[in-house]
Amino acid sequence: MRKLRNTLYVETEDAYLALEGENVVVKGSDQVIGRVPLHTLESIVSFSYRGASPALMGKCAQDGVTLAFFSPTGQFLARTTGETHGNVLLRREQYRRADCAEASTAVARAFIQGKVFNCRWLLERSVRDHGLRLDGERVATASARLQAALGRLESAPDVATVRAVEGNAASEYFGVFGELVLRNREFFSFGGRSRRPPLDSVNALLSFAYSLLATDCAGALEAAGLDCFVGFLHCDRAGRRSLALDLMEELRPVFVDRFVLTLINNQVVGPKDFETRETGEVRIAARARRRVLEQWQARKRREVTHPYLKEKIRWGEVPFAQAMLLAKHLRGDLDGYPPFFWK
């Protein structure tokens, strides 16, 4: 399993990243903001619009350090990659499975089984822990419908059916997601998922954290030798990391949704931490984004017992574990891909 080291987050919007010797240097408009030895980093995530020097991008690609660029609002822009890691035979098998309707359905079904199971678990746990503070009957009804969706997934004959079941399940889940918000409900009201752009503070947090998770999943897949642009559930589209989107489906509820609820319910973020643009877009203020990133990194360092491997790993290592299991399945070492079923 790939060892996690450190991730450098650059939140200053006018920062420029450069390479000096073996160090990453972050420069502001008129001064050096920070300097970090490159060999201590696993990845660099920049929310600056000024970018990075070609020398740094080349060095990161050469040394296997992920360098991902986001807009200041958290929208993914680009990611540097070096030589493709892994076995060409594994990638060829991935392409064959992706072109095979039956094989694609089996893997896509597993991803969505993990997602729906984990969505239901999150609802069930919320009712158990906070039943008096939310509409337990409404949440329990949605949970029951998610359980029924798991049954329909078992017999889903093709990827289109899997997508349809997932869409209905997501509608049920996000229909009651607002019930799980226990603090500042008037401000953190949630009427449903809005993406481009996010139209409320909850959606702004979800979109921001989903973009971070997608980058982690893409790096994990590359480390396992897989092509993150060729998926099973998400169809091919130029520039879209379809397999990374596939892999993150099962991790969204337990990795991001729980994280966002914790930020809100523990009052790590509040009404003053968001800005609304004239277009209606809601974005996280720069001062709050730094706080969110610190909490994200802290969460990735916490330990969890992997439900399939039965080993304690850090949460940040979960995407790497799942990418490894997917590679084992494609090689024929596992009969099926084991989703991350969390309780």
Rank of each mutant, 00 (worst) to 15 (best):
L309E: 15
K328V: 09
L326M: 14
A321E: 13
E311G: 07
Q295P: 02
A286S: 11
R283G: 05
I313A: 01
W296L: 04
R290H: 11
R299H: 11
A285M: 06
R291V: 09
Q297A: 13
F320H: 15
P319N: 03
E303N: 03
K328E: 15
A288S: 10
F320C: 02
V304M: 14
A327H: 07
H306A: 02
V282L: 01
K328F: 11
R290L: 09
E294Y: 14
P307C: 06
P319D: 04
R291D: 11
R299P: 00
R290T: 06
F320E: 03
R299V: 00
M324G: 12
W296K: 00
R302P: 01
P319Y: 05
H306W: 10
E281A: 14
K300V: 04
E303H: 12
Q295G: 08
K310F: 07
A327P: 00
A323S: 06
A327W: 11
E317D: 09
A323L: 08
R302Q: 15
A327G: 08
G280R: 04
A321M: 08
P307L: 01
E311V: 14
W315M: 04
F320K: 01
K312G: 05
T305F: 00
K300R: 14
R302L: 09
W296Y: 15
R302C: 03
L309A: 13
R314G: 04
V282R: 14
R302M: 10
I313S: 03
V292M: 05
I313E: 02
G316E: 12
Q322M: 12
M324W: 14
E311C: 08
I284P: 01
V318N: 01
H306E: 04
Q297C: 10
A286I: 08
R289Y: 06
